[in-house]
Amino acid sequence: MSFFNLRPKRQTLTYIAAGILIAAVTLYLALPILALFFRITPEMFFATLADPDVISALWLSMFTTFVTLAIVIIVGTPFAYYHCRYNYPGKIVVDTLIDLPLVLPPAVAGVGLLVLYGRVGLLGRYFNMFGIQFAFTTLAVIMAQIFVASPFYLRQAKSLFEQLDPSYEQTARTLGSSSMRTLALVTLPMTASGLISGAVMTFGRALGEFGATIMFAGNLPGVTQTMPLAVYVGMQGNVNVGLTISILLVIISFAIMITVRILQKREEKRA
């Protein structure tokens, strides 16, 4: 295949340069992950899996991340839809705010959540009067995850809804379909694969959340010690625990990615 229509010598050079670039990028990304697997023996890995701290971190992470994902999708999808379809005062401000958690350092997000919802926080003090407390609870973990991870889904959903040819929704309306029905039967199925990839990114970000969690939710095994926190603490004391959980996180991430690819391939085949 002639690339760029260059003369043969130039072509070879281009191929070599491209090859080096691709190799460099691939190795830079892949090697650290592979190194994890080589630093611990399989026996040690399986033995550490039984460690109660590992098990509780795993359950806690899975539980909180799935709840976060569910909330983001259930609340975020209609929000993104109405945000796109209607012009309301302050729409530009909301647009910018959705992007904010992406550039905000997670620790800052954590501090913000703490001074707002903490026991003596701006809002938290009123909740506290009713005995409702957020900081240092599993709910705090979920709140932190939602804060940092929701922009991934919201931006994706926004973009998809904006780019969807309006004629489909318009036709549905002329046929008598209400807004909600149109959203459910027309808009969502047509944007499904894009929404799923947004959900996957949200899941990944929520699973890996650290800075805001440790600041707002604290670090208590079984309650707020998610896998990333357990890795951090582990690497300072029990390195095997740190490595084992790191490997678990890699496996989970890969499993999600592969599942989504398979689902997408199947959907393409069906179409």
């Binding site: 604290g218 670090n219 309650v223 951090y232 603490v233």
Partner: peptide, 9 residues
């Protein structure tokens, strides 16, 4: 000990 809500680093 059960009153401990966070183990800081």
């Amino acid at each position: 000990i059960s009153n401990v809500v966070t183990y800081e680093t």
